[in-house]
Design a protein around this nucleic acid. Structure first.
Lengths: 155, 155
DNA sequence: TATATGCTTTTATATTTATGCATTATATGC
DNA sequence: GCATATAATGCATAAATATAAAAGCATATA
């Protein structure tokens, strides 16, 4: 019960700007999950979710801390030299085995140009600068298809 | 009036974990600044200050966004090769003496991994990519302890 | 001087979020 | 299965935050 609801909350907050807990309840109801405000209040506290402010509108909305959104390399089929993938704001950082960052960067430059403004590679760290209005999930899907051996999941 | 109060708020929030607006009003009163809850509510909105959750206690407290914070090298005791530190959004740029950026990057990789997703170094410029939803004050404290010779100040 | 204009602030109140307590569900040991 | 412990939930309400409306105050303007 709780676990499924919290997973749903992550999904919902990842896709929508939710401005208060009543609104979140509605989204949940649309998925067939019924709960009360008190319950989601506790969920949010437990998940460390916070309310941030929209720079422009000034209105506030819930935000999932990054440690709940991980893109992890799939150990079974990892042939790409990728160690980890992490996203924060418009920045995606990909850690690779030593010497691999440039190669991965080249791949992303050619295959993810719709999502990426560009990349800069060190030796084992690749910086991908994401475009402003992309849908993060699309980029992740793109990554998954482009670079065999990584998969994303929530939590 | 307003400007001085907001400056005080930055100072107070940088040094203390303030848990609600009434508490903030008390801190202000201790500095001889009298205002009402409604006023600081607007101040916080205007300054984009948000409430985060303490990882351990679960209780929440106000946090100042990056564009109000500056970290500067302390000229008196600067022995680390660091020239300047500046933060914008999720990006921290550290300028160093020529050739030092890599070294500083390695230090940060090992000592600040909780706050940093990764670093990329040029010759005299180091880019530190910060995780989402970190408490910036914590990162800066960490930096100060990790790299002797820098100190931070508010605005 | 009187009037208008654009903030800032307060007061009063609405909205939003958190929480104590009782209840129900779920797990654990016998 | 039954008893008991533990956790999850809802209800009612308290606490915290935001906001509408009015008042204050400085500056500009006729």
């Amino acid at each position: 019960m709780k676990e499924g609801r919290q997973r749903a909350i992550l999904r919902i907050l990842g896709r929508n700007k939710v401005r208060n807990q009543e609104e979140l309840l509605e989204y949940l109801r649309n998925e067939g999950i019924v709960a009360t405000q008190a319950t989601v209040s506790r969920d949010l506290a437990q998940m460390n979710i916070v309310k941030l402010r929209d720079e422009n509108s000034g209105s506030s909305f819930f935000s999932v801390p990054s440690n709940f959104l991980h893109v992890i390399p799939d150990a079974n089929k990892s042939v790409s030299g990728i160690v980890s993938v992490e996203i924060s704001g418009q920045i995606c950082v990909i850690k690779t085995s030593p010497g691999y960052a440039n190669m991965v960067g080249a791949v992303i430059d050619s295959k993810c140009s719709g999502h990426s403004m560009g990349t800069i590679a060190g030796d084992d760290t690749l910086l991908v600068m994401l475009r402003q209005n992309i849908v993060l999930e699309d980029f992740i899907n793109n990554l998954e298809q482009t670079i065999p051996g990584i998969s994303s999941k929530y939590i």
